[in-house]
Structures are given as structure tokens and as C-alpha cells.
């Protein structure tokens, strides 16, 4: 099941725009959450590279929540996307066991691949496609992950 709503307030000159969607913790619903991100980023007049970065980051985050958070158990993911100044701020909220992707070790691309720490390719992509990632434990259980990406400049590589 997918549910959502769009609230736009054209009267507010600080350009607040907000989109909310809830998806089941099911890999088959990743396409719906990506479509919602695309829609909101386009409404924010974000350039193509910003839209695809946000789609990437949210897809990788939601995939991790479904696979390694809920692990096949039923659950849901709430996504809120909001334009704050020139930042698009996306919050993913779940009720899965605590997992902090921001604490995962980044792969060191300067060393030979066979000596790198395994895992974390999706998290690596999340880092490169956002300006910041912040994790909080959700009161009552679960996780709140906030991804921020400027719509006017690309995040630093590396």
C-alpha cells in the first residue's frame, strides 16, 4: 500500500514545500518511493543531477531499511521531503531495530580493492549523493534518517 499527500504553500516566500509518503517495507515498493522523490525534487526545480542523487540516496537507504532493518518482517517506512531554503531535506522514519548507516566505515577508494573492508556500497553511494546524513533513534523504537542535498550545487566527491 502506498499513501501520500502533497502540501504546497505558494504564499510562503521561504519556498516551503512538503511531500509525505508511506510505503510498506517491501522491495517491490522501492519504485514508488523513487517516483515520490523525483516528483518532489522536480517540483523544487532541482537540476537533473540533484534529482538523480536524491533518488539514489533514498533508494539505497530504503533498501537497507527493508533488507537489514525489517529483515522480511512486516513494517513501513515514512518519507517526508521538504524544501528548506535551497536544501532538499528528506526524512525516512521506520520502526525497525536501531541501525545507524552514518556510523558505517566508508570504503577507502585509495587502497587496493582486495584490502578494503567489505560491505557498504549502498552507504558509500548515499554519502556521495548527499551533503549530509544524520541518524537519530526514534522515540519508542526505530530510526529517523535525515538526508540533505542542496539543489544548487553538487556534493563534494570522495
Amino acid at each position: 500500500m502506498v499513501s501520500g499527500d502533497v502540501v504546497t504553500d505558494s504564499m510562503d516566500r521561504s519556498s516551503r514545500l512538503r511531500r509525505h509518503i508511506t510505503i510498506d517495507a517491501d522491495l517491490a515498493q522501492l519504485a514508488d518511493i523513487r517516483a515520490a522523490v523525483r516528483e518532489v525534487a522536480s517540483t523544487c526545480e532541482a537540476p537533473a543531477d540533484c534529482v538523480s542523487d536524491l533518488v539514489q540516496a533514498v533508494d539505497e537507504a530504503a533498501t537497507n531499511i527493508i533488507r537489514y532493518g525489517y529483515r522480511g518482517e512486516p513494517g513501513s517506512i515514512d518519507m517526508t521531503a521538504e524544501l528548506v531554503g535551497d536544501d532538499i531535506v528528506i526524512t525516512l522514519s521506520d520502526e525497525a531495530p536501531t541501525f545507524d548507516p552514518t556510523a558505517a566505515e566508508p570504503p577507502d577508494l585509495s587502497i587496493a580493492p582486495q584490502h578494503r573492508r567489505p560491505g557498504g556500497m549502498g552507504i558509500h553511494l548515499m554519502r556521495l549523493s548527499t551533503d549530509s546524513m544524520e541518524h537519530r533513534v526514534r522515540p519508542g523504537g526505530g530510526n529517523i534518517l535525515t538526508l540533505t542535498r542542496s539543489r544548487v550545487r553538487r556534493p563534494k566527491e570522495g
Partner: peptide, 15 residues
């Protein structure tokens, strides 16, 4: 499921 490590043997081939 191994992610990065799944790519190691291939990168070794390239090297």
C-alpha cells in the same frame, strides 16, 4: 549479499 567484497576478485583480475 557481500557488496564490496563481491567485487574484489573481479578487481584483482583487472589488476
Amino acid at each position: 549479499e557481500y557488496g564490496w567484497s563481491a567485487l574484489h576478485s573481479m578487481e584483482r583480475d583487472v589488476e
